[in-house]
Design a protein around this nucleic acid. Structure first.
Lengths: 240, 240
DNA sequence: CAGTGGTCTAGACCACGAA
DNA sequence: TCGTGGTCTAGACCACTGG
C-alpha cells in the first residue's frame, strides 16, 4: 500500500488514510513506525509525514510522546464521554459505592418503536438496576441489534460497563451519541424497583449510540430518581 | 512587539501569543496579515508562521480561507452552544413560535447561595417566562454580578437572547459552561405561571457561565415542563 | 493577473527518553 | 550514546479568489 504520485489527492492525505487503515487493522501493537522510517517507506519529506500524523493526532487516533515515539491512542470510552460525566463518577464523588445488577436479559420484539430505531423487528434487551450504596437510584433498558446483544450476553453484565464491553470485546467503536433528557411518570413496577412513591416523577433519558458508519449499535432508555441523581454537562468553547 | 531569539520559548509559540493578544485587542478588523507579511515582520520562515496560525485556528480564534486570507472567527454563541441545542431551536423545530417575556428584574441579595456562587452579597436578577405558541413552558432565573446586570437592564429583554447581549453589547466572552440537570417539585407560584397541576414535577437546570479568566458572569436556574420540553445533547468522538 | 493559502522538499540543529 | 519527535530555514510550485 503505497502513495500515488499521479493522483490529485495530497500526499499527506493519502498517507493519513493508509496509516489509519493500518492502525484500524491492528498491524501495529501500540507504536507506529518513526517519522524517518515512514519518510523512506513513502519517499516523502519529513514534514509531509508529520502533517499526516498531525491529522491522526487531532482525530484522537494517535498520541505523540517526545523522545519515545508515536502511539496508538487507547483512550477509554469514559474519557470520550468526558463532557458528560458518567454515573459511576458522580456516585463515586459523593463517596458512595456504585453498582449495577441485571434484572432481565432476552430477545424481544417490543416495544415496536425500538425496532424502528434499530432497524429490525427483533432485538436484544438488557434491563439493569443501578445502585448507590445499595440504594436503587435508576433503571436502564439497553436495546441492541441481535448479533451484538448475544455477544454481550456471553459476559457477566453485573457491575460491568457495556460501553467497555462493546469496545474491547465486540470490536465496535462508539462514535457519536445523542441524548434526550426529560422527566416522566414512573410505572408501578418502576416505583417498586426504585422504592419511591408514585407521586414522584423520574428523570427520563433516551440515548442513541452510533458507530463510525452511522449504524445504531445501542439504544438506551434510563430512568433515575431526581432526588438522588442529576446530569452534569460541561462545555468549553476551545474544543468545539 | 517582536519575537525574542534568545528566549527558550519556541518562535511559533511567541508569535502565536503575540497574534492572539493583537487579535483580542481588536487591532485587526476581520482579516489578519498574510503569511508573507508575517514572515517579514517576525523574520521567520513561512512554516513557523503557519504553525503559529494553525494553533490559533485549532483554538477557534482564526479561520483560514484558501485564496482569500486568514480571518478572525466570529462564531455566534449559538454555534458554540452547538452540541447543546437551544430552546428556540427546539421550539422552532416543532413548528411553534418561541417567545420570552420578563416577569421581574431588580437588584437583590437572596437567595444567599447565589451570592456565594457569584462571589458578591448583592446581584441582579432577571426572571423571565418562556413560551411556545403562547403556552408557558419554562421559567428562567438569571443572576448576574451587579455591573453586568445593570448593563443588561438597559436593553429590552423581552424576546432577546441574553447570551447575544452579553457578547455583543457588554463585550464579555462566554468561555465555559457547566449544566446540572435534574427534576424537582415546582413552587405554587411556578405552578400558576406554567399553568400546571402541583402533582407535576418540573425539569430543573442550573447553569454556570464563565468567561475566559474563570470569572462567573452568569448563574442561571431554569425550570421546564417535562411534557413540553426535553434537553438534547449530542457528542461525537472526533472533536473531543 | 496578483495575492492568498496549500503542498512539498532537503536539510539543519535541538530536546527528550531509554539504555 | 542513539533514536525519537520538536523546531526552523529557504525555497519551489500549485490551487483558489478576486479584480
Amino acid at each position: 500500500m503505497e502513495v500515488d504520485y499521479k493522483s490529485h489527492i495530497p500526499l499527506h492525505v493519502q498517507i493519513r488514510l493508509i496509516l489509519e487503515k493500518e492502525i484500524m487493522s491492528g498491524i501495529y501493537k501500540e507504536k507506529i513506525p518513526g517519522e524517518l522510517e515512514l519518510m523512506n517507506r513513502f519517499s516523502v519529506a519529513r514534514s509531509t509525514v508529520r502533517q499526516a500524523i498531525r491529522a491522526l493526532v487531532d482525530d484522537g487516533i494517535l498520541e505523540k510522546v517526545h523522545g519515545k515515539g508515536t502511539f496508538i491512542s487507547f483512550k477509554p470510552v469514559e474519557e470520550w464521554l468526558g463532557s458528560f460525566r458518567t454515573y459511576s463518577e458522580i456516585v463515586n464523588e459523593m463517596g458512595m459505592k456504585p453498582d449495577i445488577r441485571v434484572l432481565t436479559q432476552h430477545e424481544t420484539s417490543s416495544p415496536k418503536e425500538v425496532g424502528r430505531t434499530l432497524g429490525a423487528d427483533n432485538f436484544y434487551l438488557i434491563q439493569r438496576v443501578r445502585y448507590a450504596d445499595e440504594v436503587p437510584i435508576g433503571i436502564e433498558y439497553n436495546y441492541y441489534p441481535l448479533e451484538i446483544g448475544y455477544k454481550l450476553s456471553q459476559h457477566n453484565l453485573n457491575n460491568a460497563s457495556t460501553y467497555n464491553l462493546l469496545e474491547n470485546q465486540s470490536g465496535l467503536k462508539l462514535w457519536e451519541a445523542k441524548q434526550i433528557i426529560t422527566a416522566r411518570v414512573p410505572t408501578q413496577e418502576e416505583c417498586e424497583l426504585l422504592d419511591i412513591p408514585n407521586t414522584m416523577w423520574v428523570l427520563f433519558i433516551e440515548r442513541i449510540n452510533n458507530d463510525q458508519d452511522g449504524n445504531t449499535i445501542e439504544y438506551e432508555q434510563s430512568i433515575y430518581r431526581p432526588d438522588m441523581y442529576a446530569f452534569v454537562v460541561s462545555f468549553d468553547r476551545k474544543k468545539i
